[in-house]
Amino acid sequence: MTEQIASIVAEEQAPPAGRRNKTQLKRRSLLDRLGWFAFILPVVLGVLIFSFYPMVISLYYSFFKTYTGTTNMPSFYVNGFLNFGVFNYKKLFTLDSEVWIALRVTFTYAIVVVPLSLVLSFLVALLLNSQVKGIGVFRVIYYLPVIIPTTISGLLWADFFDARFGLANNILASLRLPESRFLTSAQTALPTFMAMQLWTLGASMILWLSALKNVPQSLIESAKLDGAGPLRRLWKIIVPMCTPILFYNLITGIIGALQLYGPVMTLMGQNGAGPDNALLFYAYKIYGTAFADWNMGYACALAWFLFVIIAALTALIFRTNKWVYYGDGE
């Protein structure tokens, strides 16, 4: 009898099944949270190992004069001489004239190609957005250049633009136009390269296409009804709705342009930097310093300098992003 009463009392005093008391709530919640965290563990680890740690260590390396990367850590003394100091930064800013050439080449390239390719790919995307039959085939054709491996594209263009035996000069000659020295002359090397890169504007074009498709047709229809001409519709409706993509394309375009070196290497082969260093891109210089000269310290200093520049540019763009229109974004 007493036990029965005791058990009934115990039952009544116990919290109902649906509610949990405070400690239990906290405990389960922590486990629960950790469980969710486990899902993003790969990317967290990835960021730590492949982004955060290298950044910090890279800064550390940049203070060493001689470090070939074959030992675990650079040594503080080499042959009795101090290896640690701001030597690399001094070299970067004063002694090495190639740095400024590289910056000039890279920035010229970025300033010309990024806006040009944005505008051109937008126009092409507009064209591809028309509802004619067989548009799919054209889309594929325009995107094809993007998927060629860099080496093949380098082979192709190196042969095409060969100053002596290339087809380009042959075509120019048959059109009675003056021949050009293309990649063998300091003045024409960079423009040739820029023109070559514009061939691959399919990449950003695809993104523009998706953005254009996201412009609600209803808006356009109502604008048509209101009597807005095509140019007006373009400028006032389509472009503003595409600004998020523009933003994304601009940022990735600038960052990509400032880090470019693969296409140059595959184009020029053994003459990597071009005539008079006309194609000496900054990232190419970093690669050469790190893996041809095996001077890791200086390469890290160069890389950090580039990083600071890119960070400043990106911050600038972000701060002035008032012109980006977010629809129902987050």
């Binding site: 730590l48 190992i49 955060f52 910090v56 675990n72 850590m73």
Partner: peptide
């Protein structure tokens, strides 16, 4: 967490 990860990698680096 950050410190843990960094020290892990540095520890691994100590192995020649």
């Amino acid at each position: 967490i950050i410190l843990l990860a960094v020290s892990c990698v540095m520890g691994a680096s100590a192995c020649d």
